[in-house]
Every structure is written in structure tokens, then in C-alpha cells.
């Protein structure tokens, strides 16, 4: 009774068609990636590597400048992430023809955007909680959408499941505290740290699954140079943990929030497999969205610290789930498809 009524009120008219060219989208996403990487290098890496730079006025000025440019990049990335998330949600909504599903999506999208805005403005726990819940549901939804698709093979399913699973684990930890706070409970939510540790295992497993799903079929595309760069990077990170001028902070960076309770080579191998996959996907012009999605997830980290990082998770999982697929339908052209299939 209720559903048809709502349907009548809200959806019995034709939504305007959104026409966005994939080329434009790609260019904007590239902008986001550049800004996000700049942010991570200038803000997070610079402060951690900066401690090994001998103290001098020049170094201090350099760090100051890096911090300013990093802030600029952070804000640019954040604006782009918000814009792209809005676009992603619009496209998803329009793509769904079923009115109930569309209603659900509109509800979640609306909740996400309103709570994001309110969280930015007020910083209140309730809005943080609403934003976290909406983001969790959206990521879960994107994951489930992928699972439900018949044309997706096991590899991508497993990889996305692990990535989404890890995010859910962290969100459980984070949201359970907000829930307790809103309920005014003065107790520890059950299993908080345990779930967090499970999530860390999922992150590490995801490294392997990502390679299996998307890296293995096209690892040759990464090229000798790409593989050498990745291996070199990981070896440097690994070896540096043995030297005084440590750059293991890079590892800490990648795994923001991880406690490294597993043996460290496990993390290094997972990181290497993940990075090779990212490089290979970027070399494959048909796999741009995969590469972009994986990279954004890497930037977001295991424990997304701010709203911006959560949006990167949504976009990342969205790209992996082929959410911008809709572009083709909307623009009615068929340029490079977003391949979720492993190529045989």
C-alpha cells in the first residue's frame, strides 16, 4: 500500500537524462587522483620523511611550503570527491528503473549528502554516525550489486568482497562507538578491537585477491619498468626497516590504522601485489576505472580518518563495481568499456 503511494508521489515522472561524456569523467577523476596523491605525499609523507631531514631553515621552509601545497591539494581532492560522489549517486539512481530500489537509493544518497554537509558544518556525533552509516550502506550496496551480477567472475567478486568486508569491519569499530555514545552507554562495544584485527587480515588478503582478479590477467602490461618500480619500492620499504633512516613510515602510511600484528613480510607482499595491479590497470586503457578505484582505496587507507577518505572509499568501490558503466547508456556511445571481466 505504502510503496505504490510513495512511488506515485516521487517517481511517476521522467527524470532528466544526465549526459556526461566518459572522457570528461576520466579527466576529472585523473584530476582527483593527482590531487589525492599530492595530498598524501606532501601532507602525510613529508611530515614523516621530514623527520629524517637535518634541521635547517631551508628544510623548515620546504616543509612549510609542502604543507601549504598539500592543503591545497587536499581541498581540491575533497571538492572533486564530493562532486564525483554526487555524480555517482545521480547516475546510480537514474540507472535503477525499479522504483522501490530507486527510492532506497535516493534515501541513502540523500542521507549521505545531508549528513556529510551537517558533519562538515556541525561536527556532531549524530551526523558523523549518519554519514558513517550511509557510507557503509552505500559501499555494501555497491558490493552487493557487484555480487549480484552474473557477468562477474570469482576473482573480482572475492576482491571486492574483501575490500568491502575490511571497510565494514572498520566501520563496525567506528560506528559502534558512535552508537554507544548516542545511546549514552558507558561501556565498551563488544568485539571492537577483534573486528578491527579481522579487518586488517581482510586488507592483507585483499592485496592478493586484487592481484588475482585484475593483476594476474594483465600483469605483463605493467611492463618490466612498472614491476621493477613496484618491487624496488617494496624492497626499499622492507630494507629500510632494517636501517636507521627508516622509510617504513611509508608502510605505515599505506596502512593508516593498521597495528602490524601479522609478520611484516605479509604486508609487503600484499602491498607489492596490489601496486603491480594498479600499475597494470593504468597501462591497460580498458581498465582505467579499475586502476583509479584501486588507487583511491589505497589513498583512503584502512581507517578512513575523515569524511574525504570515506568518499574515496565510496568512489573506489564504485569504480570497481563499474558504477560509471551508466555513462555508456546515458551518452549512447560505446567507447572503451569498463571491463570487470578477467580477460582470458
Amino acid at each position: 500500500m505504502l510503496v505504490p503511494t510513495v512511488q506515485r508521489i516521487f517517481f511517476n515522472y521522467q527524470l532528466p537524462r544526465l549526459r556526461v561524456s566518459e572522457t570528461l569523467l576520466r579527466q576529472v577523476v585523473q584530476g582527483l587522483i593527482v590531487a589525492a596523491l599530492l595530498e598524501i605525499v606532501l601532507l602525510r609523507l613529508a611530515t614523516r620523511i621530514g623527520v629524517h631531514v637535518p634541521r635547517s631553515e631551508l628544510a623548515a621552509d620546504g616543509l612549510q611550503a609542502a604543507s601549504f601545497v598539500g592543503s591545497l591539494a587536499f581541498n581540491s581532492a575533497s571538492i572533486l570527491a564530493i562532486g564525483l560522489t554526487v555524480l555517482l549517486l545521480l547516475m546510480m539512481t537514474m540507472r535503477v528503473r525499479d522504483s522501490v530500489a530507486r527510492f532506497g537509493l535516493v534515501l541513502i544518497s540523500g542521507a549521505l549528502m545531508i549528513s556529510l554537509m551537517m558533519s562538515l558544518v556541525t561536527g556532531r556525533a549524530a551526523w558523523d554516525g549518519a554519514f558513517g552509516l550511509a557510507a557503509t550502506l552505500l559501499v555494501l550496496l555497491l558490493g552487493v550489486t557487484l555480487m549480484a551480477r552474473k557477468d562477474v567472475s570469482t576473482g573480482p567478486r572475492a576482491a571486492v568482497a574483501l575490500i568491502v568486508g575490511a571497510y565494514l569491519c572498520y566501520q563496525y569499530y567506528s560506528l559502534s562507538y558512535i552508537t554507544y555514545r548516542l545511546l549514552d552507554y558507558a561501556a565498551l562495544p563488544p568485539l571492537g578491537i577483534d573486528v578491527l584485527r579481522w579487518g586488517e587480515v581482510l586488507v592483507v588478503l585483499a592485496g592478493g585477491a586484487v592481484f588475482w582478479a585484475w593483476g594476474r590477467p594483465r600483469w605483463r602490461l605493467a611492463g618490466r619498468l612498472g614491476i621493477a618500480a613496484v618491487v624496488g619500492f617494496v624492497v626499499i620499504v622492507g630494507l629500510s626497516s632494517l636501517t636507521p633512516s627508516s622509510t617504513t613510515s611509508i608502510l605505515a602510511l599505506w596502512t593508516t590504522g593498521m597495528s602490524f600484528f601479522l609478520p611484516s613480510p605479509v604486508y609487503l607482499v600484499a602491498l607489492a601485489l596490489y601496486l603491480v595491479t594498479v600499475v597494470a590497470c593504468f597501462r591497460d586503457k580498458d581498465a582505467f576505472w579499475l586502476g583509479a578505484g584501486l588507487l583511491l582505496l589505497l589513498v583512503a587507507g584502512y581507517m578512513p580518518e575523515a569524511t574525504y577518505h570515506h568518499l574515496l572509499v565510496i568512489l573506489g568501490v564504485g569504480f570497481l563495481a563499474g558504477a560509471f558503466h551508466v555513462v555508456e547508456e546515458a551518452t549512447e556511445r560505446a567507447p572503451g568499456t569498463i571491463s570487470m571481466h578477467t580477460r582470458h
Binding site: L72, N75, S78, S119, F131, Y173, S174, Y177, A306
Partner: peptide, 18 residues
């Protein structure tokens, strides 16, 4: 972004455990 940065603002709200 430049406007936000000049006012020393970050377009993000912390989502860490409180």
C-alpha cells in the same frame, strides 16, 4: 580549494573514534 586553504580550512570532518 585555494579559498579554503587561505582560510586554513580543510573540507573534511574528522571521523575518528571520539
Amino acid at each position: 580549494a585555494a579559498a579554503l586553504t587561505l582560510f586554513d580550512l580543510r573540507l573534511a570532518s574528522s571521523q575518528t573514534v571520539t
